[in-house]
Nucleic acid binder design. Structure first.
Lengths: 151, 151
DNA sequence: GTATTATATTTAACTTGTTAATTAAATGCC
DNA sequence: GGCATTTAATTAACAAGTTAAATATAATAC
């Protein structure tokens, strides 16, 4: 019973693995940069979303930064303890919160924005602008597929 | 000081986020399938690598399944406790181990292979064979870039 | 042969991912 | 109003990701 020939794609033809490897390739240098500042990749994502969109409630932050709520809960606690965000309760709906980035948070982003852009530029140059755009288009298109493969 | 205009790509143009979302789209159904069997996505990757390549040492398993050694250590312990793999020490190098999939492990793969292939087929059909291949090519090409953007 | 260096694996400590359960507040229905 | 139903956020429990340090064995240098 040799199962090896029945097994689906080789790892470099396996989409999940290929996505994982590609992500690691791109994130490695960014993680290294952030480690020097003492924030994780996920904390950085949250800060950037808040800097981009302003005050948001946790549900929208989770959506935009691709984090699940339980993870976000912990991350917001950490960021607040570090003084990088502030939270207040929603004026009319007491279940919700309003989260804002602090001046220190904005400063942290400003301090690392240039290096972040440099890494992006390196990728664009090394990989090619056209290929990068093609890749992003394909990924977004994939993400836009309807959800349920059972139907 | 409005930082929002300086901030790099929108999230749907951010490669790390796009890779994350795409991966979640692809892995969601697979994870659901595996949850029914009681193995995680990572445990499934390890089992498949062992089924494909036969007996391997942990270092090579880690490389092929895209796991870091500390994670793999824990996963191998779990898989052994479940009786899905067996381990013996290397005959000449006592630092190393030799890991093999067990009959139960092979059976688990056999039991889920068809559904796994069905999910792959769904993706190929829904997304398009050509696009899928183009995506895999781009991802592999990205992964093949030299590592260090500092140079 | 012994000391040094390198390699394979594990452990530790902390953060996040994931699913399920819980709490608290709002909404809808009668 | 009172009660079931939704919704926002948190907590709990366990698996995995990540970095650094520890352990054990091999290989190398002298």
């Amino acid at each position: 019973m040799d199962i090896s020939r029945d097994i689906a794609p080789e790892t470099n033809r396996s989409l999940p693995i290929a996505l994982l490897r590609a992500r690691e390739k791109v994130m490695g240098p960014i993680r290294a940069m952030l480690a020097d500042v003492g924030v994780t990749e996920q904390q950085w994502r949250v800060l950037r979303v808040l800097a981009e969109r302003g005050t948001l409630d946790p549900t929208e932050i989770a959506d935009r930064s691709c984090l699940l709520m339980p993870s976000l809960t912990r991350i917001l606690q950490t960021l607040q303890a570090k003084g990088l965000i502030s939270r207040e309760s929603h004026p009319t709906d007491r279940r919700r919160q309003l989260v804002s980035i602090s001046d220190a948070g904005r400063q942290l982003i400003a301090d690392n924005l240039k290096e972040s852009q440099r890494l992006n530029a390196w990728l664009r140059e090394r990989f090619g602008e056209d290929k990068l755009n093609a890749l992003l288009d394909l990924l977004n298109e994939l993400d836009a597929l309807e959800r349920d493969p059972k139907t």
